[in-house]
Design a protein around this nucleic acid. Structure first.
Lengths: 329, 329
DNA sequence: ATTGTGTGTGTAATCGATTCCATATTAATA
DNA sequence: TATTAATATGGAATCGATTACACACACAAT
């Protein structure tokens, strides 16, 4: 590998001058600049970013921590992040926790040791150790999708989206709305979305059966199983609609209903959240909520880059959402 | 940030000794080792990987170049790669070309300057400049999905998969098989898959109309448009089946057929490639080919890590595939 | 003639690790 | 007892960049 010293020698100047040319600062005569640039071209020299990073404490890399890449939500977010950071000549160092909470913390440390300029975290849970670690690393930090105290967070409006969905169902005359959620360890998807449902039901004076509420684990299969349980448990009084907090689980639920010969939406309406590509192409097409994941990624990246440029107070941003009405309701 | 020097000072030893403890090599007394470890714990010290990388010429990072993250194929591959490299304590530096050929080359250079230990490339095209660049960087390198001369490549068996799909359709009595492909600039998806179709048709003695062949750009919409064109162009003699080289485009084609009131598969059978999640949940479920993308990712990562450990000659590996028969045929 | 300012370039310290080499102590072997 | 080997530690060079500081020169202003 050619180094800055090699270039300097070949151009008969000091490495300082070469550095000046490369970084476009300080005074350099046009003559020398040209000579150096030519040698750089010829040799195909590329500066070592490890060395640069060691010296400048900046890496041009931003760390992204996600629970799983192979979900549409995550890949959309990452795509959004990438579009923005690439413009700022940053790269993404991607880490995937595979839903392991402990790894969220480990990876924050790891990214710190790699001198990333900032971190975007898609957390699946919130706990004190996590918050403490984030504080401790003292890096520009964005939480996407979970409200982390003291940390700039970009939030989906889980509560209101959930209220809207439930109200929409109630308004359409589906009085008996079942619910498939996820573990309440996940404050956004688990707790808030459920709270929205519960509150909306209560405020409209509908009482609902506990047996209408089931929990899945984000997978299609778990949606299928949850639907099965709901049907099994509620013999006698079948719900007329089911609100599922993710599209994938909703697809699973639909699958079960289809298998059992229930018509959607005549026998049971189904609503999901996520606006997955699939939701549009299943039959019947699935009513869902678009969370604009890619835009959230954009936003996160923009905010992070701002923070990298100058430190800021923690802020909270709530993304808009949009109810997409389709044929499953 | 605490550095190795701080630790050394606190423990009253030289930084050499600290380094020995941290890297578990050379002789260190149990006494000193414990003392150092305790201080490391207390301070939460993490070694600077930039410094380490500068000195050792290894970064523990592997570069991944993909055409788009927000496709199921790519995210599965990345997930597969991640599962393997994470075990070896590597991280992924992700770059997304957004289908820009020139960026493939740029990113190889960039990753080189970041001292990645190796690169996995999901190329969309093959050209001399690309090959030359790969040769030039002299890094462990894996091409996934395209056969790059002189480069270790993991290949999907596009040709035979395509032959099989076509034969399967012909055997089932669909004699008039239309085809929706992509640009032949993409040797694997564009050229090989088409060749498989053409050869299979020819070898069975079926002649086919050029008007049955259309080209899309991987998007669902382009599949829709291609299907529309085929139907429009072939008035009089409608094909009885359509072989679409990606699931997404196949879904688009199905959408058009449904809209126009054609029954699938009675009026027109449809086959895709990719085994996307969607393919299973659309109605009718889509017959497709599973390319085992995640496993391909595993394989790529394993090979890369092997190559990082010791340089090897370029090899070619062909992945298996599996025809998944569903209701669209 | 002197001082100041804008240019242009180089010397050397620095970032935080690893590692070669030297040295000291202790234990084992001849 | 002398010699060798194993164990334990430190000094200093090194990786490849950036940057504070110093210096030299040209030209304008005083």
């Amino acid at each position: 590998m050619t180094t800055i010293n090699d270039i300097a020698k070949m151009a008969n100047v000091s490495r300082t001058t070469v550095s000046r040319v490369l970084n476009n600062n300080g005074y350099v005569s046009e003559d020398v600049r040209k000579r150096i640039m030519q040698i750089v071209e010829e040799t195909g020299y590329i500066p070592s970013l490890s060395a640069k990073s060691l010296r400048t404490k900046k890496s041009g890399v931003i760390g992204v921590i996600i629970p799983r890449i192979d979900t549409e939500t995550a890949s959309r977010v990452v795509s959004g992040i990438n579009e923005v950071v690439a413009k700022g000549n940053f790269q993404i160092l991607l880490t995937d926790t595979e839903l392991d909470k402990q790894k969220e913390i480990e990876y924050i440390r790891l990214l710190q040791s790699r001198h990333v300029d900032g971190i975007i975290l898609l957390a699946t849970n919130v706990n004190d150790q996590l918050i403490a670690t984030i504080k401790d690393v003292e890096l520009p930090f964005i939480s996407l999708g979970q409200d982390l105290p003291g940390v700039t967070s970009i939030l989906y409006d889980d509560y209101h989206a959930s209220v809207d969905v439930t109200n929409m169902l109630l308004s359409k005359g589906y009085e008996k709305v079942a619910f498939i959620g996820v573990s309440e360890e996940d404050p956004s998807v688990g707790r808030l979305r459920k709270k929205g449902y519960v509150d909306a039901m209560a405020s409209r004076g509908y009482n609902f059966d506990e047996s209408w509420i089931e929990t899945g684990d984000f997978s299609i299969e778990s949606g299928y199983e949850a639907m099965k349980k709901i049907i099994k448990n509620s013999r006698g009084e079948l719900p007329s609609a089911v609100f599922v907090v993710t599209d994938r689980m909703a697809i699973g639920a639909m699958e079960y209903l289809r298998e059992q010969g229930y018509r959607i939406p005549e026998d049971m309406a189904v609503v999901g959240i996520g606006a997955s590509t699939m939701s549009r192409y299943v039959t019947p097409s699935l009513t869902t909520v678009d969370y604009f994941n890619k835009e959230a990624g954009h936003r996160a990246a923009e905010l992070l880059i701002q923070q990298i440029k100058q430190k800021k107070e923690a802020e909270k941003f709530v993304q808009t959402y949009r109810l997409i009405k389709r044929d499953s309701v």
